[in-house]
């Protein structure tokens, strides 16, 4: 099922292409709209008792800068960037053709800079970006509904489908769901508040990630089911910036929105799950409403899993293709994480 964002993207691309071929018509229509707007304002002011001349002056003053309005509309149509670029390229081409020596130097400079950028990128990636080293990352796969119209992209699935895969699929040693909703929470430790990007996850995510916390522990299915669900695992950055990197952070109470949570663990630096900006992880519990058959197609959450040892992606694919899960209308596919 297409999301609102997908549909908007479709409209933006379609309208952008349409606009590229009718820039003059767009400007003409905008001019006519502005004229209409001014005429309505003038009529209103005249009806209120102002003279025609004064009304016109006042309406133009209220309207403000027409050029700025045109520029902003061009940005909205998506044509400005292209028209500016074409104009710049034409100018550059004319300048280069005038001087062949300058053209040779330009080509040489671009070639050298490209090579240099590739080298710099390698160093930056290795020494500065430092991607987190997840153990046996090749075992981690995305599980979800496949979007054939979007180059077989693995999409989101519903909590109901997730619980069925978690219960029935044998190809995975661990599987977990990541709530895709944006959860921004206001955290209040010791009376001082800050805003944190919070991620709700099922406990299986910790096993999928396979990363041990830097301090203490994470939550498990058992602990959550026993009622220890008001807990939080925090990221390294928050631990450093908000708790001074103190080991006493474990067991501290934080108030998140309206409920109290206990910090039970701190994850290592640069650790993240799917969404790099999230800095706090809380247990997610499925609701009885989500488990209703009517909500099977509420495909809005991401699922990742870790393959069992010795099981390849194709084997796991075969298992799910021939499982009753597919018969229930849920065709799943995965890709390497």
């Amino acid at each position: 099922m297409l999301t609102i964002g997908d549909m908007e993207l479709f409209h933006i691309i379609r309208n952008w292409f349409a606009n590229l071929f009718r820039p003059k018509a767009l400007h003409g229509e905008l001019d006519e709209e502005m004229e209409h707007h001014l005429s309505m304002t003038i009529d209103k002011k005249v009806a209120e008792g102002m003279s025609s001349n004064l009304a016109k002056k006042a309406a133009l003053k209220e309207f403000g800068s027409v050029e700025r309005l045109r520029d902003e509309c061009q940005d909205a149509w998506g044509t400005r960037f292209l028209l500016d670029t074409v104009s710049d390229i034409r100018f550059a081409a004319r300048q280069l053709i005038k001087s062949k020596g300058y053209l040779a130097v330009t080509i040489l400079t671009i070639a050298m800079c490209s090579g240099l950028n590739v080298s710099i990128y390698r160093y930056v990636h290795a020494w500065i970006v430092k991607p987190f080293d997840y153990p046996n990352a090749e075992e981690v796969v995305a599980v979800g509904k496949i979007w054939k119209k979007q180059r077989n992209k693995v999409g989101a699935i519903s909590p109901l489908s997730f619980t069925e895969i978690e219960r029935e699929a044998r190809s995975f040693k661990a599987i977990g769901l990541v709530d895709s909703d944006d959860n921004v929470g206001v955290v209040v430790p010791n009376g001082s508040a800050f805003v944190a990007d919070v991620m709700l996850i099922t406990p299986g995510i910790w096993d999928v990630a396979g990363v041990k916390p830097l301090l203490s522990s994470t939550f498990t299915r058992g602990s959550v089911e026993e009622g220890h669900d008001k807990v939080a695992v925090i990221g390294y950055q928050i631990w450093q910036s908000r708790f001074g990197g103190s080991v006493n952070v474990i067991g501290k109470q934080i108030r998140l929105d309206d409920s109290e949570h206990t910090i039970i663990g701190v994850m290592p630096d640069r650790f993240n799950i799917l969404y790099p900006n999230r800095t706090m992880w809380l247990p997610r519990k499925e609701s009885s409403h989500e488990m209703k058959e009517a909500n099977r197609e509420s495909n809005s959450h991401r699922v990742i899993a870790r393959l069992n040892e010795g099981v390849g992606i194709s084997q796991a694919q075969v298992e799910l293709d021939h499982s009753p899960l597919c018969l229930r209308g849920a065709a799943f596919l995965w890709e390497s994480g």
Binding site: H11, I12, M40
Partner: peptide, 29 residues
């Protein structure tokens, strides 16, 4: 006005609204 018309253009672009020409109260297009 400088915010209204760019906003309308953005919304048409995203498919939230559609635009059609008609005749207004003062008999103008």
């Amino acid at each position: 006005e400088g915010s209204l018309y760019p906003a309308l253009a953005r919304m048409v672009q995203k498919g939230w609204i559609k635009a059609e020409w008609g005749t207004s109260e003062n008999n103008r297009r």
